[in-house]
Simulated assay, not measured.
Amino acid sequence: MAKFYLIGFTVLLMFDTIAQCSFKLAAEHAQPLAMSVEWIIRVFSGHWIYVSIAGYIFTFFTWMTLLKKAPVGPAFAASHFEVVTVMIASVWLFNEPITLFKLIGTILIVSGIMFLALAESKLTNKNSHNSY
């Protein structure tokens, strides 16, 4: 089961990161921002918007597959790790800096995910011992 979670959440993060970064690339391609038909045409004339839509669709189906087996609390927390993966990808793709606040946020996100996972594993172990 651990292998299922590891692979599943890795795939989820990959699709979500691709979707979000592609969404930003689509926005950059459509510059300047204007609430006009021309702007909408610019958005949909580039391929990044379609990569983003596909990424969100694959993210959704991966998430639904994971929720069939994963406990909701830790799964929901782990799905927010994409904030970290998007930040890392943004350094490479968009030359965005990793600031002190981003680093602190990353530490807090990862810590929260770890605490929820530990709490879930202790609860699972406690329930398996009580079933005898």
Rank of each mutant, 00 (worst) to 15 (best):
A75W: 04
T124E: 15
F94C: 02
S52C: 14
V86T: 09
L108K: 03
L116M: 14
I104W: 06
L93M: 15
Q20P: 00
L6A: 15
W48I: 03
I113N: 04
F23N: 12
V86P: 06
I49A: 11
A119L: 11
K3E: 14
A27C: 08
E28G: 00
S90Y: 05
N127W: 08
S52Y: 03
K24R: 13
F81V: 12
T59F: 11
T85H: 02
H29N: 11
G46S: 10
Y56V: 07
I7H: 07
E38S: 11
L67E: 05
F58A: 09
A75K: 04
K126E: 13
F61A: 01
L13R: 04
F115C: 14
V37A: 14
L123E: 13
F4E: 12
W39R: 02
T62C: 13
H129P: 06
S121Y: 13
L66N: 06
L12T: 03
I18R: 00
I98C: 01
C21Y: 00
E96K: 12
V37C: 04
L93K: 04
T59G: 03
L33A: 09
G8T: 07
A27G: 08
E38G: 13
L103I: 11
H80G: 14
G73F: 07
I53A: 13
S22Y: 00
S36A: 04
I7D: 09
A89K: 06
A89E: 08
I53H: 07
